[in-house]
Design a protein around this nucleic acid. Structure first.
Length: 558
RNA sequence: GCGGGUGUAGUCUAGUGGUUAGGACGGGGGCUUCCCAAGCCUCUGACCCGGGUUCGAAUCCCGGCACCCGCACCA
């Protein structure tokens, strides 16, 4: 049985337009969900908070690159190779193995083989389950990227992470940052993974929303945690021990880079602002065999949901893996410069051609020969150059070797990367679980979103749909919406029913126009969680709502 | 992918071969000075899809799709 809370959330999500299975009229498609009006507003609000905390406050830059990328890029990134594997399973014990791994000792190059060949080879060599000796299944393709073709047969993949779109653009972005590190680049977008069996609604999707940061750093630079060093963070290290340490303490021991601790602290702040209780959050370090092919150290931020500790964010230290690979495959320069405090003067030995000898020897080609000489390392016998496809040895009397002093402003290196990667759908689901509340007296459902991320901030009701109350209410609604505050009007059913409806989609503030409004131009403002009301002049409504939503004022302050 | 379970209005559900598929909640329209899903009237709306068995299928059988639980997988 599906657990209780999840059932309730799925039910309310569908009924009230938060999210639902996509393509239902055609029977659905596993791993794909639609966000409804309430859900997509909630998602936008979560993303805006994310931008506020991670992008704007740290002056990162945000880019937006395509979902579809060429095969070569994913060969470079390691994703293509990683996912063309064929898997076989033991029919007896159920363990899965890479088919080519099993054949390694028998055939030198088993990697490129197709399923039929692998199957034949497995049979020919009578290979059984290494664990229990059971029979193996027919090899099955195990490829988590969605392949497609672009134009006339150019192979491409839907991106499994937004990260690659940032890495391949590093040279441009580095220049746009005036060639300075650290450089933090954010990207919000879709990722696609062809999961074998998507389950658990929003928690395991084939197309999902992610928000990623690639922080490019100079590994030799120190990183200051500043005020975030004090933040207490619950962690579970690789060895299984759990503790609560400050970011500073974490940075000092057992962590690849202090930036990871910084992002832990910020992530904690982000999740708390979303209404996730602190004691439901922890950071778990990956075991070595769990690490992705690009990662040197990864910490998952997990939230204790109704179905147990669930990974929602991964913070990885990717080293220079990605830039190095793209540099190798594209032959583009992916380095940054580490400028010396003082330009260094270094002595180098240089070849200086003697034109008075080269001139008569080579006539009009002399200049060309001289240029070639300057680029080469001298050997005692002379320097070999190639001119017009002929190799020749230029003997030492045709040049001098001089000691030259040159000034060097810095040295080039491949930046390292720290990557916090946020699973937005999972975070949104977590927000729903912790916002979900049933009023004890009545059992009525309430989504207690923090006002800042509530999809709809206010609702306006006329107590009665007559005597001009409805007109006043409509005017108020228009005014609030006109000020950029999402708001709706509702005059259907009893007043209690309208409050209840608003509670179910987490509207934090309800405004009711009653008979007193006609006398003194005040309305009641009801706060969702407490169901308390206060009278507010209509003229003050929008500014009051703004400060309540922004959190600069609380309802009690009114 | 394997094993087990499930699929009826927007939601929750009754219905085990035979009238027009029943209820609750919701939603729409109205009435009632109506502040926390009140009351009354009224309307709205469903058998996951495709085959088969049968005089007749929501019900039985087969296939597909989807969901749930467990296993496996999860860069």
């Amino acid at each position: 049985m599906m657990n209780d809370l999840r059932t309730k959330i799925m039910e309310i999500a569908k009924r009230r337009g938060i999210f639902w299975k996509a393509y239902e009229i055609y029977g659905g498609l596993a791993g794909f969900y639609d966000y409804g009006p309430v859900g997509s507003a909630l998602k936008n609000n979560i993303l805006n908070l994310w931008r506020e905390i991670f992008v704007i406050s740290d002056s990162l830059i945000e880019i937006d690159s395509p979902n579809l990328g060429p095969e070569i890029m994913y060969i470079a990134s390691g994703h293509a190779d990683k996912f063309t594997d064929y898997m076989v399973k033991c029919q007896k014990c159920g363990h899965a193995f890479r088919a080519d791994e099993l054949l390694k000792d028998h055939i030198p190059d088993a990697e490129g083989l197709d399923a039929d060949r692998l199957w034949k080879e497995l049979q020919a060599h009578q290979i059984k389950c290494p664990d229990c000796g059971g029979d193996l299944t027919y090899p099955e393709r195990f490829h988590l990227m969605f392949p497609t073709t672009v134009g006339l047969g150019k192979k491409a993949f839907l991106r499994p992470e937004t990260a690659q779109g940032i890495f391949v653009n590093f040279p441009i972005l580095y220049r746009l940052n005036r060639e300075k590190l650290p450089l933090g680049v954010a990207q919000v977008g879709k990722g696609f993974r062809n999961e074998i069996s998507p389950r658990q609604g929003l928690l395991r999707l084939r197309e999902f929303n992610m928000a990623e940061i690639e922080l490019f750093i100079d590994p030799e630079e120190n990183f200051e945690l500043d005020s975030f060093g004090e933040v207490k963070i619950p962690i579970k290290t690789r060895d299984g021990s759990e503790s609560v340490l400050t970011a500073e303490e974490i940075a000092k021991r057992g962590i690849a880079r202090p930036e990871i601790a910084y992002y832990m602290a910020k992530t904690l702040k982000f999740l708390k602002t979303l209404g996730i209780p602190e004691n439901k959050i922890r950071f778990r370090q990956h075991h070595h065999n769990e690490l992705a092919h690009y990662s040197q150290d990864t910490w998952d931020c997990e939230i204790n949901l109704s179905l147990g500790w669930t990974e929602v964010i991964g913070i990885s230290y990717r080293g220079d893996y990605d830039l190095k690979r793209h540099m190798d495959f594209s032959a583009r320069d992916m380095t940054a410069i580490r400028r010396f405090k003082e330009p260094k003067k270094i002595k180098v030995k240089k070849v200086r051609p003697r034109m008075e000898i080269l001139g008569p020897m080579f006539k009009s080609k002399a200049k060309k020969v001289a240029e070639l000489l300057e680029k080469k390392e001298p050997s005692p016998a002379g320097i070999e150059v190639e001119l017009d496809r002929k190799r020749m040895l230029i003997t030492p009397e045709a040049y001098d070797i001089v000691d030259e002093e040159i000034t060097v402003g810095g040295e080039r290196f491949i930046p390292h990367v720290i990557e916090p990667s946020f699973g937005i759908d999972r975070i949104l689901y977590a927000v729903l679980e912790f916002a979900y509340y049933e009023r004890p007296e009545t059992g009525y459902k309430v989504l207690r979103f923090p006002p800042k991320i509530a999809p709809i901030k206010a609702a306006v009701f006329p107590l009665m749909t007559k005597d001009g109350l409805d007109g006043i209410a409509r005017d108020i609604k228009v005014k609030i919406c006109g000020n950029g505050i999402p708001c709706y009007y509702d005059d259907s059913g009893s007043i209690g029913r309208r409050y209840a409806r608003a509670d179910e989609i987490g509207v934090p503030f309800c405004i009711t126009v009653d008979y007193q409004t006609r006398e003194d131009n005040t309305v009641t403002l009801r706060e969702r969680d407490s169901a308390q009301q206060k009278r507010i002049p209509i003229s003050a409504l929008t500014s009051v709502l703004k400060s309540l939503v922004e959190g600069t004022k609380s309802f009690d302050d009114l």
